[in-house]
């Protein structure tokens, strides 16, 4: 495993470098830069623009430097934890995003755990008890979850959370804790607010996962090795957990790389509705205003999550299913 882990980490480095270059090219693609957007806005409002001041700011922000030099400075700062300077907020990006990256990560992780914790038992039950009353009821609930728009569920849950539990509307914590140092009461406030976005974002993913797990497991349960294992007298639980379930969850493990960023970028609408202090709404604003380092940092964060997710899923697959496959993708 050590050799495999080292090889995988080494392939991540050029991948992340290539991604960072592409991101930097893309955020520079729109004509002009942040300052030109600012000048246009000021001129539209009838304000005078001092060309010398503009030149000074361009030098100050490093926008007059060649493209590759700007890129090199940005990338070297990234690996040292310096995300650059936000033109719009006139602050280092680290200070602008503050706890947003962490809170986004917490929401995403909690949502993944919620999705797995709910979907796995239900999916297994539905497959093992196919066409039972429980299977029909859970399938119906699953379809409801798939069909309900996230933002609608968010509004409904916000209303009832406030009505029944007195939870403040919107946000990931009580407003008095925003921009305050970390304390236990701030953490408990986050936990009190966290369940709403977790349920809202996780519901549709849970329903989809139940359906896929049920289908995968049904396929596996009908294979001959399962019949043989039963015939040899293995307990039903052991027969289920030892091989069919491991095979059935392979696609989910292979999917971890896509799940992490989808949860973050896919939850932008929910974040706006719930006023969550996550990265989504700020990324949209940064892209609109060409705040290149802020937007670049968010995009790099999401890209890193994809690469890390694929790395985790490859390691998990190596542990769970270290089989060789011959040409054609068939397991031999």
């Amino acid at each position: 495993m050590l050799g495999y882990t080292v090889r995988r980490i080494l392939t991540m480095i050029p991948t992340l470098l290539a991604i960072s270059f592409i991101i930097f090219v893309i955020i520079q693609l729109p004509p002009g830069d942040f300052l030109e957007t600012e000048i246009a806005e000021m001129q539209a409002q009838g304000e005078a623009v001092d060309p010398e001041k503009i030149e000074y700011l361009r030098r100050e922000y490093g926008l007059d430097k060649p493209f590759l030099e700007q890129y090199a400075v940005w990338v070297f700062g990234l690996v040292q934890g310096d995300l650059g300077f936000s033109f719009e907020h006139q602050l280092p990006v680290n200070e602008v995003i503050g706890d947003r990256l962490w809170l986004t990560f917490v929401v995403a992780l909690a949502t993944i755990l919620f999705t797995y914790a709910v979907a796995f038992p239900i999916g297994i039950y539905s497959a093992v008890r196919q066409y039972s009353v429980g299977d029909y009821v859970l399938t119906f609930i699953g379809f409801l979850g798939l069909a309900t728009p996230n933002f609608l569920l968010a509004l409904v849950l916000l209303y009832f959370a406030n009505l029944w539990f007195g939870t403040s509307i919107g946000g990931l914590m009580d407003p008095k804790y925003v921009d305050h140092p970390w304390t236990w009461s701030k953490v408990s406030s986050i936990l009190e607010h966290l369940w709403i976005p977790v349920i809202v974002i996780g519901t549709s993913g849970t329903a989809a996962m139940i359906r896929r797990l049920r289908a995968n497991l049904l396929d596996e349960l009908q294979k001959q090795y399962v019949i043989t294992a039963r015939a040899k007298g293995l307990s039903p639980l052991k027969v289920l957990l030892k091989y069919p379930l491991r095979m059935a969850i392979n696609p989910f493990i292979a999917d971890i790389g896509n799940v992490l960023p989808q949860l973050i970028s896919g939850a932008v609408l929910v974040s706006v509705v719930l006023s969550l202090e996550t990265t989504g709404p700020m990324l949209v604003r940064a892209l609109q205003s060409q705040d290149m380092y802020l937007a670049g940092s968010f995009l790099m964060f999401e890209a890193s999550l994809v690469v890390i997710g694929v790395f985790i899923s490859d390691l998990a697959l190596a542990v769970l299913d270290p089989r060789i496959r011959l040409a054609g993708g068939a397991t031999k």
Partner: peptide, 19 residues
């Protein structure tokens, strides 16, 4: 006997994986 390789090499004979 275990096989370690990326998902691509799992599906391709003579991929970059190893046993």
């Amino acid at each position: 006997l275990r096989y370690f390789g990326s998902r691509r090499s799992h599906k391709k004979e003579g991929g970059s994986g190893f046993m």
